[in-house]
């Protein structure tokens, strides 16, 4: 039975740290698959103009394409060339909720994310994806510093 590790990527430095940790764990575990997940923040309850609605499908495709090309594909290529077993996907929604639901559906062993270095008023006001994930996840979560 393969162990699955979910890694939340966001195309920035914390994402890379999470991935590094996943690689270490993968080596230790042995039979392991790394599942890369890039989430585009999106809410079905936001307000849009009629024109934005008409363009939405096209924009969604573009968003997925851009994220796949810029973040997922390079990361997957690097993992594969290093001999890791890995998959990647780009999804829309609430980052914490999506990471958790992917982990549950894939029967993953754990979710790995990295803490962003941002702090202060904004982080306190809006909370962070990491904090929400830790509070609500139904599988173990590793937060990399």
């Amino acid at each position: 039975m393969t162990t699955k590790l979910i890694v939340g990527l966001d195309g920035s430095e914390p994402g890379d740290r999470a991935l590094e940790h996943a690689k270490c764990l993968s080596k230790l575990i042995g039979n392991c698959t790394i599942e890369l997940v890039y989430i585009i923040e999106w809410s079905p309850y936001s307000f849009q103009t009629a024109e934005e609605n008409a363009m939405r499908h096209k924009r969604r495709d573009q968003e997925i394409k851009t994220a796949t090309e810029r973040v997922i594909a390079p990361a997957l290529a690097a993992l594969n060339s290093d001999g890791f077993s890995a998959n990647g996907r780009v999804l829309h929604g609430d980052a914490a909720e999506i990471l958790n639901s992917v982990a549950t559906k894939d029967k993953a062993e754990q979710i790995i994310v990295a803490r962003s270095k941002e702090s202060g008023f904004a982080a306190k006001l809006f909370g962070s994806v990491t904090a929400k994930l830790v509070m609500s996840a139904s599988v173990p979560v590793t937060v990399v510093n």
Binding site: I40, W42, Y45, T49, A50, N53, R56
Partner: peptide, 15 residues
């Protein structure tokens, strides 16, 4: 859930 990111029913109603 696979349609996440498309225009939702709520958004169409709100618009």
């Amino acid at each position: 859930p696979n349609d996440a990111g498309e225009v939702s029913h709520f958004q169409a109603l709100a618009t």
